[in-house]
Design a protein around this nucleic acid. Structure first.
Lengths: 220, 220
DNA sequence: CAAAAGAATACTGTCTACATTCAACGTCGA
DNA sequence: TCGACGTTGAATGTAGACAGTATTCTTTTG
């Protein structure tokens, strides 16, 4: 059963897009009347959308002083990466027992996309494929709350990165190198060997998680 | 700078209270007009509150069919406990390096409260003290997003438990036994020895996390 | 008697409008 | 010239009303 999305849902997506595009910068205030007019909706549905985004830590609200786009400090980035690592590790732990019956199709598709984009030097394409790879991986764990928490975290990072850094500057070690690491991780998953998976995952994330400067935030 | 809480905040708290009290049962629909009248506010602030609670997975929304209190299946309980374990473990990892400079005052206070309540056979008091112990512990890690995720999870469990089970039935091993386990965990934290902490934490959570039936959900 | 269709009711989604509060700017005084 | 106070303007917090849609009950037909 499908239904047309409500204005609230549309507003959420559109505001996230505005932030990702850089139309709304870090620390920028969101004025309800202006934004409502810009989106062509009235304030009530917009306000509900803002509440949702605030709950996801994409914007923050201070009473009587409205909403503003969050600006991530170095500490914030460290927090996000640290939590992301833990959640993805947990996802793998949950996933490993299920691997024999797992369907790798979706995961393979993202890796294929990643290779294609990398060969065309399409950094944005690699970026998106990478994001989808990890979201798919976590989704395979079959843990709804985990998936939810993880994708919220990814959203926070993604919005920040597309705002502050050129994608190219964030691809440590080159596009093709990153593809290879994901390929290896996928292979280890196919093997189902827990030790190999742990190793591939650690190698994959080696330079990315744990003390990492905000300016060096990596897309992987 | 202080400011009076908005109706949205008040509505959030009140609705959570209604659920905890059992006035709103699992799977029960939340009718906006009725609820707004009951709370003495109009629908717009109520709707914003509902959006927030939905984002916290305390209620769920289906388009054009309103909101309903979530009902937790056994699988949901397993999910929450699993994630809670991972997050609290991560909190300890983050906390250990900071232990030499840590202030245990707040933590000690919750343990004191727990003992007092246990001696008076006050299961609800123990329940609350236990909750505060873990929230305080996680807060000491100094990781805002972690703390946020953790307390959201605790809310989900707490609301469910106070709805479905008598507190007494959930205190595995007796009230005093639980106090002792927390006391030991606190002692290990004071020692600062990582191995001892890990052991105390595992012993503390032994029977609680991982395959646990919904009916057996424990307060610890 | 049961099932399906239609009508009535009630709830959600959305909008317009009003009250309240905060922040910035200008003015007045020291 | 600098600081403080008051005023003004704009944005947030809230309320009430209307339109559209789902659900339920009743009625009618097979």
């Amino acid at each position: 059963m499908i239904s047309q999305p409500s204005l609230v849902d549309l507003a959420c997506e559109e505001i996230k897009r505005l932030i990702a595009n850089g139309d709304l910068g870090a620390d920028e205030r969101l004025f309800e009347p202006r934004l409502a007019a810009q989106l062509g909706i009235s304030r009530p549905p917009l306000r509900e959308a803002l509440r949702i985004l605030a709950a996801q830590h994409i914007i923050e609200q201070t009473p009587r002083r409205g909403y503003r786009v969050v600006s991530l400090s170095q500490n914030d980035v460290d927090e996000i990466y640290g939590l992301r690592y833990v959640l993805e590790k947990f996802a793998l732990d949950q996933l490993i027992p299920k691997l024999p019956d797992a369907d790798f199709h979706d995961l393979e598709e993202t890796v294929t996309r990643m290779w294609d984009a990398a060969r065309n030097d399409d950094a944005v394409g690699v970026f998106i494929a990478n994001r989808d790879f990890h979201l798919t991986l976590v989704a395979m764990a079959g843990h709804r709350r985990l998936q939810q928490a993880y994708s919220t975290l990814m959203d926070q990072m993604q919005l920040y990165m597309s705002r502050n850094l050129s994608i190219e500057a964030q691809t440590h070690g080159g596009l093709l190198e990153g593809c290879k690491r994901h390929e290896r991780l996928l292979e280890s998953l196919r093997s189902g060997d827990a030790a190999a998976i742990a190793e591939a995952f650690t190698a994959h994330g080696e330079r990315r998680y744990l003390p990492i400067s905000a300016a060096q935030a990596s897309i992987w």
